[in-house]
Design a protein around this nucleic acid. Sequence first.
DNA 1: TTCGATTGCGTGCTCGAACACTTTTTTAAA
DNA 2: TTTAAAAAAGTGTTCGAGCACGCAATCGAA
Lengths: 354, 354
Amino acid sequence: MKKKIVRIKDIAEKAQTSKGTVDRVLHNRGRVADDVRERILAIIKELNYEPNLIAQSLKSQRAFNLAALIPDPNLDSYWEAPHAGLEKAEKELRQYGVHISKFIFNSHSESSFIAKAKEVIREHPDGLLIAPIFYKEALPFFKEWADMGIPYVLFNTQIEHVAPLCYIGQDSYRSGSLAAKILRFGLHSPGTVLVAHVNEDISNSAHLITKEDGFRNYFKGEKLDGTFNVISREINFPDEEGPDKQLDEIRAQHPDLGAVYVTNSKAFEVAAYLEKNALKDIKLVGYDLIEHNQHYLNKGIIDFLINQNPLGQGYWGIHQLANHLIFKKEIPAIKFLPLDIITRENLDYYLDPQ
Amino acid sequence: MKKKIVRIKDIAEKAQTSKGTVDRVLHNRGRVADDVRERILAIIKELNYEPNLIAQSLKSQRAFNLAALIPDPNLDSYWEAPHAGLEKAEKELRQYGVHISKFIFNSHSESSFIAKAKEVIREHPDGLLIAPIFYKEALPFFKEWADMGIPYVLFNTQIEHVAPLCYIGQDSYRSGSLAAKILRFGLHSPGTVLVAHVNEDISNSAHLITKEDGFRNYFKGEKLDGTFNVISREINFPDEEGPDKQLDEIRAQHPDLGAVYVTNSKAFEVAAYLEKNALKDIKLVGYDLIEHNQHYLNKGIIDFLINQNPLGQGYWGIHQLANHLIFKKEIPAIKFLPLDIITRENLDYYLDPQ
DNA sequence: TTCGATTGCGTGCTCGAACACTTTTTTAAA
DNA sequence: TTTAAAAAAGTGTTCGAGCACGCAATCGAA
């Protein structure tokens, strides 16, 4: 069986018309007699015509200026990976005329976010990828971008009541349940389990609460809430101090502390404490393959990390924009990335992209 | 900063010659004066010319007939996924003229493998993807294909002393270590750990032994070989019987059996036994997301599965061939796919492809 | 010098889709 | 019936790389 590629010309011939007319039908560009239009549409369906993307993009040669509004990786190394993902996607899509302008803000400064968001508006990109870590500050901009007709993709932080082209990231609830499952598997005897929100402004981070919900409900669902006592704490401290004081206190209150679930990428802070105090039997699960975490994962102090695949988030974010703008594909409103479970033995595979 | 794409014409102009000459230099298609050649090469380097793949493949329009030598998914559902991966890759690459012919053999019959392998030779494909599950029978063909100049990619089963274009699959040794790590995390007290090779001809499956090595060495490396007693057994039985007799026997010998590691996709057989005998405390880890395994994973009888990503193996196998044949990229000799850890809570994400 | 052969190099067509431009047909008004 | 305007349909160029073809210059032999 031969696979024949259907060209516009083939359709034209079969419809006894010219490729120009077929082209007008395909692109709804002006004035074709109704009977001809219908005939052509029927033939398109019949022959199952699919435009040749290669020829298409060779011709169109259009430039797509995408913008990425994303935190500074120098201030929080977590953001290095999304940057890398962006660049990987840009490399692949350069052939199609994609260019990405980065607008980098300070992840600790709302005002820098606002300033950069305004810059984005001035630039008027064809599409936008944004990590909306400042919920309240970001809200007004969504409306503005929508009015300007700039499609935007959110990643890392899911936001309700906003209609992006797509959200890319993890299912926080599931993510919490998964952490619970892992820790429960490793827990040998009844005791206290701590959910630790480390150095994060909870009021601006709904997803951490969602993670906690998922975590707690795992224990409830498994009828284990009698066996294990799940407590949660916000643990905030200046960089130079460490969480020692707070953790000491918690251990004093709950001598049967058996596991800690850190809801963001700061598990290494807790790991340092556990190591210092030789608490080998307290299980520890956290997020993200940043260097500090890898260090304690290799030492066996952090047992498992859940990978949020930040590289993939950047990569797929740009690809979704390209799928929408260039390839005119339908985009799912949510793209959940896998919840990868990482431990010392499979760490390597998740460090470098495919 | 504008990103200017360098064309052959640009090079020609700068070198004060014609695009035909530049083309001859680029493709070593003879007869260019030495001074001109050098001038052109210098300019190509200077301008950092990269051929426009889009235009390239539009023009070349070549057909690439790839062959896939792969077991029948109707006899072992594990093979459904590689088939799906093949098809996904074919869809993506159809634009580039790729067509895949499947040569499907019976995974229980060496002679059917040989027959199909001979068919492949008659077909004379441009490239070949093969799951060499019959080591001895496959060997002579590798040489033949090499002589015919057909590049071949191996997947699923790694074979030494053969020089494929690439091997795609898992690092079996690591995979064993990972299984050990997981089980050890869940083991609460000293006892016996069973490595089970279920219904598989060990003599033709070196990779199962490698898995076992990785598994055992984890316990040795962690200085746990005193605490845990690792034993291994080949458990073979006819389909209609089940492993009950053998497992009963093992439990009689080792009443302290705490965990089972099944080295292939047959964990569900052991799971059925555990369920029947209400052995909730025996931890179980196996491979592959086939339906039977998913069933017991959801019931919580299988604790974790390691995903060999069979879909990805098919997908990347075809892509590696395409990278070599069409895009002339350098191919790594080994592409290890990630060792994904799957449990009930993150199963979904690994079922459907990206 | 003339002819043929070889080497070196330039021209122009091709791929399929996009789109500007031209030509033909239809419709409405004079 | 003529004519202009509007609608419909057709033609031809373009994108960048590949490659066939053919022209021009050079060389060697007669």
